[in-house]
């Protein structure tokens, strides 16, 4: 296996809040390989966005980040703000969830893209403008020349997300982090945006980390999937393997709560995610798990190979046979 372009080891993120430290990410390992599309799945508050905002150095001052994040061989954790700025937007960039609020309302769309270009290269204004129009064309915006002169409010939600993508890929980054890029869009537009992201991935050879809670999206576009719960990964592996034979009860619960044709009722996962101001000992999912036993509470279970995937459930192989 080649060395990953982004290698995260034992990443921990803690927020200092007025009511005490909140542990959002508890020791996460992840490898992103050049040019792949990788999914990180989990419900709200599982720490999936926070992990990658930490990698981008975009967390507020109240956050403490420890561990190791190697991007193309460079250690990012502990970088000076200046070094971090030269990485951000050049080697690694990000697409945000809500395109309606991710663009600055008072600047022209073209100017917001050229700003990204000129932040990292000594491009003339003219060349940057021309490149911005090209980028808008790549992401499928009709009449890119005219559109570049318009303001964000003159674009629809889907079109704004295309602009955000154009901005993110402006410097042909090695890694593109897409933080719930389709969540705020309606379903027909979602498919188009995913298609744009896939096209960019192929055309620029960019590795894409797709952060989402939508397993339907994952099944459509990703090769590998990482399932996150309460600041830890609970399962990871090949998309098809996990969809056919989930090894962790949480993943199984997620899949059961997906709408399917022929199935009358959705089965939600009972209970609520744990309060991360007081993270539970042992397996964080055990309070909601039908299969929990006493041993589940003793230590945070590590990811171990089970079948084709890796699972952080101590009873994974035992439960595999049952349905």
């Amino acid at each position: 296996m080649p060395t990953p372009i982004l290698e995260i080891r034992n990443l921990q993120v803690t927020f200092n809040t007025p009511v005490g430290p909140l542990v959002a990410v508890r020791g996460v390992d992840i490898d992103v390989h050049a040019g792949e599309m990788l999914a990180v799945v989990g419900e709200s508050g599982s720490g999936k966005s926070v992990s990658f905002l930490a990698a981008m150095g975009l967390l507020p001052r109240s956050a403490t980040v420890t561990g190791s994040v190697l991007l193309d061989g460079q250690q990012i954790v502990g970088m000076s703000p200046k070094q971090m700025r030269s990485v951000r937007g050049r080697l690694m960039s990000m697409i945000f969830q809500d395109p309606l609020s991710a663009l600055n309302p008072v600047h022209r769309v073209g100017a917001q893209i050229t700003e990204m270009l000129r932040a990292h290269s000594k491009m003339s204004e003219r060349a940057a403008n021309a490149r911005a129009v090209e980028l808008l064309e790549i992401v499928g915006i009709p009449q890119p020349g005219d559109r570049a002169m318009q303001y964000p409010h003159e674009f629809s939600g889907g079109m704004r997300q295309r602009v955000v993508i154009a901005m993110a890929i402006a410097n042909s980054p090695k890694v593109l982090i897409a933080d719930e890029p389709t969540t705020a869009l309606d379903v027909t537009v979602q498919a188009q945006i995913l298609e744009v992201i896939q096209r960019v991935q192929v055309q620029f050879g960019t590795a894409v980390v797709l952060i989402t809670h939508d397993l339907g999206v994952v099944a459509r576009v990703c090769e590998r999937v990482n399932v996150m719960y309460a600041g830890c990964f609970v399962e990871r592996g090949n998309v098809h393997g996990i969809f056919e034979q989930p090894t962790h009860p949480y993943t199984r619960g997620l899949l059961a709560s997906l709408p399917q044709t022929g199935v009358e009722r959705l089965v939600p996962i009972a209970g609520f995610p744990p309060n991360m101001l007081r993270p539970p000992s042992g397996c964080a999912f055990r309070a909601r798990c039908d299969h929990a036993v006493e041993a589940c509470g003793s230590a945070i279970p590590p990811l171990v190979p089970v079948g084709e995937s890796e699972s952080a459930c101590i009873r994974a192989s035992e439960l595999m046979g049952r349905k």
Binding site: M56, L58, P81, M84, R85, S86, V87, R88, G89, R90, S93, M94, F96, D98, S101, A102, L103, N104, P105, E115, M116, A119, H120, V164, M167
Partner: peptide, 15 residues
């Protein structure tokens, strides 16, 4: 605290 400020920061431009 608005999101476009985070977008701006994500571009790697100076504070």
């Amino acid at each position: 605290s608005s999101e476009y400020m985070r977008t701006a920061r994500s571009k790697g431009i100076s504070e």
